[in-house]
Nucleic acid binder design. Structure first.
Lengths: 192, 192
DNA sequence: CTTGAATGAGACATCAATGTCTCATATGGG
DNA sequence: CCCATATGAGACATTGATGTCTCATTCAAG
């Protein structure tokens, strides 16, 4: 009782449960608590003991998604080197979280109330800053706002994640597809 | 009674109701039948008389979205002129339906059962064909598959619609933002 | 005016998911 | 071995949305 810290007997792995929930909800955003529990391999009672309710579960997933994105941003070193390379690194680092991100992106109920997690604003700011840096260095065109580019990047993440999920595109092309489309666009160019 | 065709006394405007529902559900995808009815300015009873249930309503919205997209494709003349111009026309024509499209795009329950509306497949095919035409004519790069480009276009539509809805980007920039990003990409180029 | 049709308002039953509870069981530590 | 703790299974009440029903009202046509 003294130190009930993590790791005593706990057959319960919070991280594992969250990831299972994310994987399921990415495919079926209306999944029941029962289905989530089943997907995580635990009973509904246990799921409910650790997450006060569906809302709390979604909030936890939101926090997880934000944390993974921030970690990805850290790992991508967005302030180093050419902005285009930083964008490439960012997409690569965020790829494992793309499914979760796609789910959260569509869970617009999160953004209904005014009490939205300020983590999104931080993320937006960091990604926006990256695009702005690319514009100021002359690498990126300046007629598309950094805010729009950030939104578009989210959309491409969602599209990419779903396209892979449904088997329309190969999972190994995820990074290539997003980076090449975002940076280079569709038009063919004669260039270096 | 003889000819109860549309237009007798009907204060009920099916199209108006569907558009109100689309506008509401685009912002709050979990809106109640009650809220939908209120948003459409009719009673829940009437709403229920014309749409057997929430499911039927969503199906009707799906059919409306597909019809609008097909109309947009027709109007865009995807087989005429340079493919890049056809894409530009397509984005312009589809813009009014972008919000509805974004809602349907996230309503992935529609694609759970195997009985998904074949209209999507037709649309996918037509848009994919446009990108393929651009590749074959040498306008578009060939290292991004037409299928991915189609998925990405959907994602950009959703991103654009939401960004406008939340006031992050100006509505008048919708077409420009999407077309320029999709065709030209972010990288700055020295060119014509 | 009279009539038929559609609507609005509200009552009502139904149903699914949620949240809470109890109890039996297993498991690890002392 | 004994105890504490966490879990699984399931019963149970609650809640919110849904779908159905009735009835009064309105409105246009005849």
């Amino acid at each position: 009782m003294s130190h009930m810290g993590y790791g005593c007997l706990m057959a319960f792995d919070r991280d594992h449960v969250l990831r299972a929930a994310a994987a399921l909800l990415t495919r079926k955003s209306t999944a029941t608590m029962d289905e989530v529990a089943k997907a995580a391999g635990i009973s509904r009672a246990t799921l409910h003991r650790h997450f006060a309710g569906r809302d709390a579960l979604v909030r936890a997933l939101e926090a997880l998604g934000i944390a993974e994105c921030e970690a990805a941003l850290d790992a991508a070193r967005p302030d180093e080197g050419p902005a285009r390379d930083a964008v490439t690194r960012l997409v690569r680092e965020i790829e494992p979280a793309a499914g979760l991100l796609a789910f959260l992106y569509t869970e617009n109920q999160l953004f209904e109330g005014e009490e939205q997690n300020e983590g999104w604003a931080r993320l937006d700011e960091r990604i926006t800053a990256l695009f702005r840096r690319g514009q100021e260095s002359g690498e990126f065109r300046i007629d598309l706002t950094p805010v729009w580019l950030t939104e578009a990047l989210y959309g491409l993440f969602a599209s990419g994640a779903w396209a892979v999920l449904e088997g329309r595109v190969a999972g190994k092309d995820f990074q290539f597809n997003i980076v090449e489309l975002l940076l280079g666009g569709v038009l063919r160019r004669e260039e270096s």
